[in-house]
């Protein structure tokens, strides 16, 4: 018992450190996250009859994160076979527990049982550590964000193109715009994590030029990714040309702001106040006018330390 007690206490300490590092009070954020989780769960179940399936999928995808091969190799080396499988079973059970409780509350014993069975079976799964297949990208000339991002989200990009096709077939302009903004949303995720300092240090460019080069690359490559959607919408929804152009420009602004925000705390992750400012500007686009220069000067200040 001591082994598990120590292991999970350590996991909890790491979680608290992550939250503190992000500028949050650990216990307060756990309470808020729990409240948010159950509020969203209630909301989801009132919106669609398929909520249970989505719910199970989400729970299992979270449990799946424990199947990472290198992490499990470490656990196998450290623990005995019995302790290893027990640890994984406990991890998966704790991960799906909040979902399980809600399914029981919603009187869905069948789904709860399926969730228990699948999450338990997943303790025998270890994700592949290497892939022999290399996905080609059109971004070869300018590594790395779009190359890595495209390969990570290739399936979702295909889904966005599929939704565009659906929007054309069913003449649903909003769906088309949704897929266009979805593509820009995915591009934003390419810039959420600060890269290793080495990959900034290698650049010959000064801080300002470095940022402008990043933005230029992002604009060109995001245009390439959104081109099939934008062109289709322009051809099939001619009455909405102004809206399409506005949304496309909005996408570029979001991207520019994301890149600038990323480096405001570099080499640390974007901090909470800046994240809140960024999120506010996503909802209130005119804030771009103030935030883009604000983030730019903050980023230049941080990057100057490395780039001179």
């Amino acid at each position: 018992m001591m082994i598990f007690q120590h292991y999970f206490a350590l996991q909890f300490t790491m979680l608290k450190r992550h939250l503190t590092g992000f500028g949050l009070h650990p216990w307060l954020s756990i309470v808020v996250a729990t409240a948010a989780f159950y509020t969203l769960s209630f909301y989801l179940f009132t919106r669609t009859v398929y909520a249970g399936y989505a719910y199970m999928l989400l729970a299992l995808s979270l449990a799946f994160k424990h199947s990472e091969a290198r992490r499990n190799d470490f656990l196998k080396l450290t623990f005995s076979k019995v302790h290893y499988f027990t640890t994984r079973l406990l991890e998966n059970s704790l991960t799906v527990l909040p979902f399980l409780l809600f399914l029981c509350f919603k009187k869905e014993p069948g789904m709860a049982l399926v969730l228990i069975m699948f999450s338990s079976a997943m303790i025998f799964i270890n994700t592949k550590r290497s892939f022999s297949f290399t996905l080609s990208t059109p971004f070869y000339q300018k590594p790395f964000e779009f190359i890595v991002g495209f390969r990570t989200w290739a399936g979702v990009f295909l889904l966005a193109y599929f939704l565009t096709a659906m929007s054309l077939i069913y003449q649903n302009f909003n769906l088309g715009i949704f897929s266009l903004m979805g593509i820009f949303g995915l591009c934003l995720t390419f810039y959420t994590e600060p890269e290793n300092e080495y990959f900034v240090w290698i650049h010959k460019l000064k801080a300002g030029a470095f940022l402008l080069d990043k933005i230029k690359t992002a604009v060109v490559f995001s245009s390439l990714l959104s081109l099939p959607v934008t062109l289709s919408l322009l051809i099939f929804f001619r009455a909405h040309i102004a809206s399409i152009v506005i949304f496309q420009l909005l996408g570029y602004c979001y991207l520019a702001m994301m890149i600038l925000a990323k480096y405001t705390s570099y080499p640390e992750k974007i901090n909470l106040p800046q994240a809140i400012l960024f999120a506010t500007a996503l909802v209130v686009p005119p804030l771009f006018l103030a935030l883009i220069p604000f983030f730019y000067f903050q980023s230049v200040k941080r990057l100057k330390v490395i780039l001179g």
Binding site: T134, L135, Y140, Q141, K142, P143, F144, I147, V148, R151, T152, E195, F199, I202, H203, K204
Partner: peptide
């Protein structure tokens, strides 16, 4: 980076 080839890595350092 998780999904970058050896060739792309060399290009990245040269581009920089």
């Amino acid at each position: 980076f998780s999904k970058i080839t050896g060739r792309e890595y060399i290009r990245l350092l040269c581009n920089a």
